[in-house]
């Protein structure tokens, strides 16, 4: 990840910990968000979309599953689409 992507990823980690109650220690850049360990589901993805929109003004509506894979993919998507 680039320096900017890491900065975004760190903020996304904070947002996910706050809004979804995920233990910050468990939430690494690489851990799958929808895997067994974190165990998010589609309802949580809507909350992620709202958080990203509020924080960065980036709309993730209709983008498919890939950017939601982990914090790193979210950060890369935001970095690529931020205004």
């Amino acid at each position: 990840m680039t320096e900017n992507e890491i900065k975004i990823a760190d903020r996304i980690k904070e947002l996910l910990s706050e809004s979804l109650g995920i233990d910050a220690d468990v939430l690494t850049y690489e851990i799958p968000l929808f895997g067994d360990e974190i165990g998010l589901d589609s309802i949580d993805s809507m909350e992620i979309i709202a958080c990203i929109d509020d924080e960065y003004g980036v709309s993730m509506n209709g983008v498919g599953k890939e950017p939601f894979y982990n914090v790193e993919s979210l950060a890369k998507y935001v970095a690529a689409n931020i205004g």
């Binding site: 979804l20 109650g21 995920i22 589901d41 589609s42 309802i43 949580d44 909350e47």
Partner: peptide, 10 residues
């Protein structure tokens, strides 16, 4: 309510 939406909303 604070917490994971998938749990609270279900």
């Amino acid at each position: 309510e604070k917490g994971r939406p998938s749990v609270i909303l279900r």
